[in-house]
């Protein structure tokens, strides 16, 4: 069966989605990711969707799920590289993916993850209240 590879980089997990997603594939990714978060005790998940040309409500939900599930396992999720057309479509669809952190590219996404994690270590305050949605 098709699977999207998940790379482990230190405390982070890195996923680059290079193929067109269908529902089953997205669901597999969701369960694989949470398994990996637990296995490696990861602190951050970075999902690169720069090659994804379509995100509909199902895949939007999966992204939200991953973010929330990781959060309760104490890992931050950042989605990076969303294409402009995809962003406009998601907003028009009525799915602005609130509560998911986004960054322009992998580099910025890594910075964001690092800043969130060091912040967590410095003080256990909630970084952003909107995260908990």
């Amino acid at each position: 069966m098709d699977r999207i590879p998940i790379l482990k980089m230190g405390d982070f997990l890195l996923v680059t989605i290079q193929v067109d997603l269908y529902d089953q594939l997205a669901e597999t990714l969701e369960s694989d990711l949470v398994q990996m978060v637990r296995k490696y005790n990861s602190k951050g998940v970075l999902i690169d969707i720069s090659a994804v040309s379509i995100i509909d409500s199902f895949m939007g939900r999966i992204l939200g799920n991953i973010s929330t599930m990781s959060k309760i396992m104490d890992a931050e999720t950042v989605v990076v590289g969303m294409q402009p057309a995809v962003a406009i479509t998601l907003v028009e669809l009525g799915l602005p993916l609130k509560g998911i952190h986004c960054a322009l590219n992998v580099e910025r996404g890594m910075e964001l993850l690092r800043s969130k994690i060091t912040l967590d270590i410095q003080d256990d305050d909630d970084y952003d209240d909107s995260d908990t949605e």
Binding site: V91, E92, A103, L104
Partner: peptide
């Protein structure tokens, strides 16, 4: 608000 949401999805 839509424009703001779309900008955020881009990470800005």
């Amino acid at each position: 608000i839509k424009t703001v949401s779309a900008t955020r999805l881009m990470g800005a």
